[in-house]
């Protein structure tokens, strides 16, 4: 897998089945710039999808999920939010977070 740029037109389609990680970010957000390459790298190593949502390009998605602090990583299972974490994380922590929800 690789990092998928998501927006209004493909977001719902991409989260509807399985475990999916969504990174809400913006160009002006410092920690987001540090977090992005971590997720890019991780996306090549795991079978789960990782979506990247730019909140300025897709404000309606950020609004829908009440994201008001970024970077914000939201984990979905079959289209439903099951967990979230605010702030840039090292790769190991993202893996742990994901591991918690694998079954």
């Amino acid at each position: 897998m690789s990092l998928i740029e998501a927006n209004k037109s493909n977001f719902e389609e991409n989260i509807k089945s399985g475990l999916v990680l969504v990174d809400f970010n913006a160009d002006w957000c410092g920690p987001c710039q540090i977090f992005a390459p971590v997720l890019e790298e991780l996306s090549k190593e795991i079978p789960e999808k990782i979506l990247s949502v730019n909140i300025d390009d897709s404000p309606e998605i950020a609004e829908k999920y009440s994201v008001s602090s970024i970077p914000c990583l939201v984990i979905f299972r079959d289209g439903e939010e099951i967990d979230r974490s605010v702030g840039a994380l090292p790769k190991k922590k993202v893996q742990k977070l994901l591991e918690k929800h694998k079954r």
Partner: peptide, 17 residues
């Protein structure tokens, strides 16, 4: 409420408001 209205950094989260 962190990330849902409460923030500790204006330059990080100001744009949401």
């Amino acid at each position: 409420l962190i990330g849902h209205g409460i923030s500790y950094c204006a330059t990080c989260d100001g744009n949401f408001f």
